[in-house]
């Protein structure tokens, strides 16, 4: 029991690790916010561009979606960070992680938004046209509010799943919660900082997971 406390909940080690791990946690939060901003905004933009039904634009968007839905997140992060410099594009660990995960989230969001828009009955468009509402205003006032409502639980789930990937940044030496805890762990040869990191991740994600459970419950009867 003593050994357990000594190794995993060693208060003096945790106290020492706290400043650097908290700075790491701030980085995790920043990456998460950047990913959400890039992913949701770009995803919605792509879904709207699809409505134009231009063949070339459609093909490009489809390629983007298929690529980033299919490739593992870590493969994309590593590619951006280690392969692109050979092409003259250099990114910080933060940028590589945020862009890679943002691209992944945008692919999922584009799919969800465009399926949600397609799910609305045609009558919505027709009724708006009958009322002489211009297309953009129809989109903004009639279609999007309903589509976004339909999409919200699914988007929330994806946002959580993809932002959790921010921990993958350690592979490109991003100094986030996990990275900071690992480097401190290496200095003191004691895994307590990892427990601190785990606790911070739980503190960040449990409210989000609970929120997604609530949103899903509102949408479905079970």
């Amino acid at each position: 029991m003593d050994k357990l406390v000594q190794n995993f909940f060693n208060l003096s080690v945790i106290e020492g690790a706290l400043p650097s791990v908290l700075i790491g946690f701030a980085t995790t939060v920043q990456v998460a916010l950047a990913v959400i901003a890039i992913g949701v905004a770009l995803g919605l933009a792509l879904a709207l561009l699809r409505l134009l039904e231009r063949r070339l634009v459609d093909a490009l968007i489809t390629a983007w979606i298929e690529l980033f839905r299919t490739l593992p997140q870590l493969v994309i992060i590593i590619f951006l960070y280690f392969a692109l410099p050979y092409g003259g594009i250099r990114m910080s660990p933060f940028a590589a992680t945020a862009f890679a995960l943002g691209a992944v989230l945008s692919a999922f969001c584009a799919e969800i938004f465009s399926a949600s828009i397609a799910a609305l009955p045609k009558g919505q468009w027709e009724a708006a046209r009958a009322l002489n509402l211009p297309t953009l205003r129809t989109l903004w006032l009639v279609i999007l509010p309903q589509a976004v409502r339909l999409a919200t639980p699914l988007i929330t789930n994806r946002v959580i799943a993809v932002t959790k990937g921010s921990a993958l940044g350690v592979a490109v030496s991003l100094n986030d919660t996990l990275g900071a805890a690992q480097s401190y762990m290496a200095i003191v040869a004691n895994p307590s900082p990892l427990m601190l990191a785990a606790a911070l991740y739980l503190a960040f994600f449990i409210p989000l997971v609970t929120l997604s459970r609530y949103l899903e419950r509102r949408m479905t009867p079970y």
Binding site: K164, P191, L202, F205
Partner: peptide
């Protein structure tokens, strides 16, 4: 279980 990033779980298991 869903709140842990898989990598954090892995590092926790592997290094601790």
């Amino acid at each position: 279980l869903r709140s842990f990033p898989a990598l954090v779980l892995l590092v926790l298991i592997y290094y601790s």
